[in-house]
């Protein structure tokens, strides 16, 4: 029984599907689709991370900017900042109002202006960071600040934030749309591959039927084959996507501070990406089964 041991473990398909070129293209198309889907998904994850960070950092926040005024007779910048802080502290709903030192301001602007931001000769506005409990009437506050501390403007983060949120969700919807389109294309590709497989091996399928094979038995052959192909393709696509993301992360880490959002993915996010090839494979297998069963009922 020496020779039989090997045949026990060899993979067998009653249909010679592995020899078809039509089947093999599934591997490549799955690789491409998983690659694109994984990148779209990674994009969504990063954007929702970013939106979350903006939310935490900006929600319930206001910034008051007091500009240096060149006109004679105006109160000094320091005085106007003090007045503004007083007005703010007296406003119901404001929980804190902190004046940023000129050094802090310079540091915030450095990414845009370079080291010149620290030049004391540059007329720099002063910034007041305001924390509220969210109940402040910003329009009334803006008018009062304008009247009592000329040159000051109120910047309501909520306006920003809602813009950012809208932007983030638009990106997410776009990514979802891309993933759905890719899924649809994958289904079409599998249907095509399975149909042509059935057509090529029609006489074998008929023979199996004559020998008592059920449609499920035939479908299982296709399922196993499609699973084999798409799993390979999916892992390849995931590998490429991971390499691309690592490349982007590496490139962005080299850029100067803060301009770009953090592009590192958390472990659970990597796990989510790893689910993409599994989902693609499952989708392909279910599609293959459905296609075979649907096609076979039309045969005698």
């Amino acid at each position: 029984m020496k020779t039989n041991g090997a045949s026990l473990f060899r993979r067998r398909f009653d249909l010679p599907l592995a020899r078809d070129a039509t089947g093999r293209f599934l591997t490549w198309i799955t690789a491409l689709m998983v690659y694109l889907a994984a990148l779209a998904l990674a994009g969504t994850l990063l954007v929702s991370d970013m939106a979350g960070r903006w939310d935490r950092g900006l929600a319930g926040g206001l910034t008051v900017q007091v500009a240096p005024l060149a006109e004679a007779g105006a109160a000094s910048l320091e005085e106007r900042v003090e007045t503004a802080v007083k007005v703010l502290s007296a406003t119901p709903g404001v929980t804190a109002a902190t004046t940023l030192t000129p050094e802090d301001t310079a540091r915030l602007l450095e990414p845009w202006l370079g080291p010149a931001a620290a030049d004391p000769l540059l007329p720099m506005p002063r910034l007041i960071d305001v924390v509220t409990d969210g109940t402040v009437d910003t329009r009334a506050l803006d008018e009062r600040l304008g009247a009592e501390a000329p040159g000051s403007t109120l910047d309501d983060h909520a306006v920003w934030l809602s813009d950012l949120r809208a932007f983030a969700s638009a990106l997410q919807i776009a990514a979802l749309g891309i993933v759905l389109l890719i899924g649809g294309a994958a289904v079409v590709a599998v249907v095509f591959a399975v149909r042509s497989g059935l057509a090529i091996h029609r006489h074998v399928v008929e023979l199996l039927h004559l020998m008592g094979a059920t449609d499920r038995y035939v479908a299982r052959q296709f399922e196993a084959h499609v699973m084999n192909l798409t799993l390979k393709g999916g892992l390849l696509g995931l590998g490429l996507a991971a390499a691309t993301l690592a490349g982007i992360h590496h490139a962005s880490a080299g850029l100067r501070a803060g301009l770009l959002p953090d592009t590192a993915l958390a472990p659970w996010q990597w796990l989510t990406l790893a689910a993409v090839p599994a989902a693609a494979c499952l989708l392909a297998v279910v599609t293959a089964r459905w296609t075979v069963l649907r096609t076979l009922v039309t045969l005698p």
Binding site: H209, L210, M211, G212, A213, T214, Y217, V297
Partner: peptide, 13 residues
């Protein structure tokens, strides 16, 4: 149609 496989399995050809 779904009764055929069972029948055919009892026939050797």
């Amino acid at each position: 149609r779904d009764e055929m496989p069972e029948m055919r399995r009892q026939i050797g050809v």
